[in-house]
Design a protein around this nucleic acid. Structure first.
Lengths: 245, 245
DNA sequence: CGCCCATTTGAGTTTAATCAAAAAACGTGG
DNA sequence: CCACGTTTTTTGATTAAACTCAAATGGGCG
């Protein structure tokens, strides 16, 4: 089941068949969450590691006065922190955008796997570090980019992340996110997001249809976003090594 | 030497004498960096894990057009990512604010330590997770807080982090950061930072003297910042357990 | 003393927020 | 397949927060 995760990890390192079997074993215990519900709440005690098999979700924090910030999106193949269970309680919540299918991984199971598959362990660490890098990039995005650049940057990132797990088709990728959520992710208001998207559509940077978008000219989008994909670390040696040999 | 780190980790879990000895062994190879210089640059290949023994630094990213964002501050006791060496190249840079004394930890040395001291390993994971939580909080800060709230929030965070490593004195703590750097950390301009600080001084929220600040009334500062310290996870069981018993 | 860096202030501008309401799209049950 | 309620998107008018540009002041240090 965790094909998306395996596919993503192979951007970093080639995995042996045994490695992949081990990763496949993670998908045993599955949990379903309805769209619009919280998968985990602030204050909850984290017991397991979650792997997103299907569907979209976001990590968010909220103030008492209602101000909300989405701090990350989860797409299939994503893992929440490898060691969440070290914390006594969650300092944020995760909500499902679409119906979500999760692999719920007991801590022992994961530790066991990491004991026996050093290459997988390294690959999972890479996943963790990439997530941290993405978080830093979001910090930059909110601090120093204009509304137009922020949105363009987010679309670039989402497109590449989805491509890494095989969820794009040509220049098109799924994007089941409302403008209100987009506003909460970019630190803008939904009104301003709407106006900026209109502008992007008008200049042909991006095309929205249904719950997906198309990027006619990635180079152009990348240019207005001032997007540098290096922080996704997708160009590692994975493609050139054979772990079975 | 890594007293600050040990002190911080003990907020999370009690460490045995053997654990502490092992951690002390990390401080063997020391590197000095001058104020104002880069400790590591974007594009460099990370070879070691860095532990900050003394001095302040910041992690930053910069655009070709000069826009810069500080995405984290490092204070004594902080570690950069435990597994940086998994990456082929750095996607950001780290610069010294003051003269910095670093412990340079070879990857083998660290892995070795983690093999033999599971309690330390867990504590180091906790450190890593707290850093990720701080990064998320910065994302929120930039996305949804006003200039005044952002600055107040940063002061709350810095104060608590420094207190956790024993670097505060009463309500006072060191803060060798210029207003330009403060602007780059909060996503503001230095002009606006200056005006907001004036306001904070006028209302008695904070007092600056030399390269330090004093918080006359933490509760008041915390209130204007809408600061919730839960993301620092400093209230774990560390204080109640004895690892030697 | 003089230089450099950091801070401070003023005046005018811009980006994005706010408030309010209409239009469009979506899903669902009849 | 249509009607209807709900959610999402869109638009307009006004306001406010933060930025820009420019210059003066202040502090620390050799």
């Amino acid at each position: 089941m965790p094909q998306r995760l395996i596919r993503k990890l192979e951007h970093f390192t080639r995995l042996s068949d045994a490695d992949k079997d081990a990763l496949n074993g993670l998908g045993r215990k599955v949990r379903l969450c309805e769209a619009g519900t919280d998968i985990i709440r602030e204050g909850d005690t984290p017991e397991n590691v979650n792997l997103f098999l299907d569907g979209w979700a976001y990590r968010y924090k909220q103030l008492e006065d209602g101000r909300r910030q989405i701090v990350a999106f989860f797409v299939p193949g994503d893992l929440c922190d490898l060691h969440v269970f070290v914390f006594r309680e969650m300092d944020h919540a995760i909500a499902a955008i679409t119906p979500v299918r999760l692999a719920v991984i007991p801590r022992e199971h994961l530790l066991n796997l990491m004991d026996r598959h050093p290459r997988v362990t390294r690959a999972l660490w890479w996943e963790t570090l990439v997530n941290a890098a993405i978080q830093r990039e979001w910090t930059f995005n909110l601090g120093r980019r204009t509304a137009l650049e922020r949105l363009a940057h987010l679309f670039c990132e989402v497109f590449l992340r989805l491509r890494a797990v095989g969820l794009t088709e040509g220049n098109t990728c799924p994007f089941p996110v409302t403008q209100v959520e987009l506003a909460d992710a970019t630190g803008l208001t939904s009104v301003h997001v709407n106006r900026t998207l209109r502008e992007m559509r008008a200049s042909g940077l991006i095309v929205f249809k249904g719950r997906q978008f198309t990027v006619p000219d990635f180079l152009a989008l990348r240019k207005v976003a001032l997007f540098n994909p290096n922080y996704l670390h997708l160009d590692h040696e994975g493609a050139y090594l054979n772990a079975n040999a």
